[in-house]
Computed example of a mutant assay.
Amino acid sequence: MRRLAGHGALIVILTMLTQLGGIAWGLALLFRRRSLAFVLFYAGLSTGAMYVAPVMGRVPLSCLSDQALTVQSPMYCVLNRQYVTPELRDVLVDMSQHMDETFPGTVTQVLDANFPFVTGFPLLPHLSHHDGRKVDLAFYYRNGDGYSPRATRSPIGYFAFEDGPTQCPQQWPTLRWNLGWLQGLWRDLRVDEPLMVAALNWLGRDDRIGKIFIEPHLQASLGIAHPKVRFQGCRAARHDDHIHIQL
């Protein structure tokens, strides 16, 4: 019974993290060499999703691109978190091309997007990435020599927060993690303000975009006053480490 419960818990965890991993582990239980079987099944299901998902309304973003738009880490593709609707994909392509044309050499990096299938299926820990119409973008950063292409302060683009005032009280439950113990570990990079302003202004002007979330202190310091740029609320995750956009 304990072993069965353990397999059940693992299936749940893998499903929550990757959507398809629970299915792969369930199939792997039919074989003696479960780890190998899991890897093969998971790779097959993930590869198949890249061809099936477009039929159902979502397309994968490339983790191998050397162009102006790329997924920040292969981890997001391994976990099947790089899917968006074709319309949102087009927005991202147009935005990245605009940024590269305005500031040659600029690379726009995608963080968490959505799973390949099923509207309403949660992509934890996000509250709203469940329909292919939302995506997170990494900040543009610079070092002492100027803009630093493909650089992020943390290895996955999240959790390297920019300091600034907040009106949010301490409360529970909340996803507003400060993770102060991590902050000293990140790379010494600064937000590239001209690129951030250009990106946010372009997104604000695009009729396909409905909402843009960043922290109010960043909106103020960047001088962004577009009505689409909003505060996500005190119970949601901090947005001074990434930009959230949605159709």
Rank of each mutant, 00 (worst) to 15 (best):
M1K: 10
R2D: 09
R3Q: 15
R3P: 02
R3F: 13
A5M: 12
A5R: 01
G6D: 00
G6E: 10
H7I: 00
T15V: 05
L17A: 15
L17V: 14
Q19C: 00
L20D: 05
W25Q: 07
L27C: 10
R32G: 02
R32N: 06
R33T: 03
R34D: 05
S35Y: 07
V39I: 15
V39W: 11
V39R: 12
L40C: 14
T47D: 10
Y51N: 00
A53M: 10
G57T: 10
P60V: 11
L61G: 11
S62E: 13
C63E: 00
C63S: 12
S65N: 01
S65P: 04
Q67E: 15
T70D: 03
V71P: 01
N80F: 05
R81N: 10
R81P: 14
Q82K: 00
Y83C: 07
T85G: 09
L88K: 02
R89P: 02
V91A: 07
L92H: 04
V93W: 15
V93M: 13
M95K: 04
H98W: 11
M99P: 09
D100G: 03
E101L: 13
T102C: 09
P104I: 10
G105E: 10
T106D: 15
V107M: 10
Q109D: 01
D112M: 10
D112N: 12
A113C: 06
N114I: 02
F115I: 02
F121L: 07
L124D: 03
H126D: 12
H129F: 08
H129I: 07
D131L: 02
G132W: 04
G132D: 06
Y140I: 03
Y141L: 13
R142P: 01
N143W: 06
G146M: 11
Y147I: 06
Y147M: 05
S148W: 12
R150Q: 15
S154E: 09
G157T: 06
Y158E: 03
Y158K: 01
Y158P: 02
F159G: 02
D163P: 08
P165E: 09
T166P: 08
T166D: 12
Q167F: 09
W172K: 13
W172L: 09
L175G: 02
G180V: 07
W181T: 11
W181L: 14
R187I: 03
D192G: 07
E193G: 10
L195C: 15
L200M: 10
L200Y: 06
W202C: 06
I212C: 00
F213W: 12
I214D: 03
I214Q: 04
I214G: 01
E215Y: 06
P216S: 01
Q219H: 11
A220C: 01
A220L: 04
S221E: 14
P227N: 11
V229T: 07
V229C: 08
Q232P: 01
Q232E: 00
G233V: 02
H239T: 11
H239N: 13
H239E: 11
H242M: 12
I243Y: 09
Q246A: 13
Q246W: 10
Q246D: 08
L247A: 15
